[in-house]
Amino acid sequence: MTDPMGAPVPERIGVAQYRTQSDFPVERGYVWTSCASVENGNPLYWDDAVADEVTGGPVAPPTMVSVWFRPHHWAPGRTSDVLPLQVHFDLKDHFGLPEAVMTDNTIVFHEPVRMGDRLVTLQVLRSVSEEKRTRLGTGRFWAIDVEYRNQHDALVAVESYTGFGYRRRPAEGGGEADGS
């Protein structure tokens, strides 16, 4: 098996790939937009006095950690799409699986993310299954870890995804299709 980057898939298991720095520092505008979108009134995000006392200054909601890495919808000079979970799309391409869903997602939160942080991420493929047949179609499951660190190299979160890439059968199922 050879992936789109030219390395056999088994050799990519456990290897850190796609180290990327966020396009912009963590900032409050997006924190407030996120909180507003779900009506999150936690005073940590709205009241500086509370944030100063409880968290030593403003922090971002932990579940926002992946938000800081989603590429701009457009950027000057960019000629190809930038995909936020590239390993997942590499596997779809490699195995010729046009559809995919994320079936499982775990996030472990470490150091708080603070305003002005410049985060770095990398992706690690953990496993790829043999071909399986499910109610969605025939395909493969894979597990990918995404590690996030701040500018001091402190770990802020690890996100683990289970994806299922497949060829479609006429059924509608759970999980979130990736839209690619």
């Binding site: 909180c35 979108s37 909601p61």
Partner: peptide
Amino acid sequence: TPSQAAWFERYVTDWTGP
């Protein structure tokens, strides 16, 4: 999914407080 994560976080921290 990320939006659902934000809903879950809001739900839990509404209960726990800051």
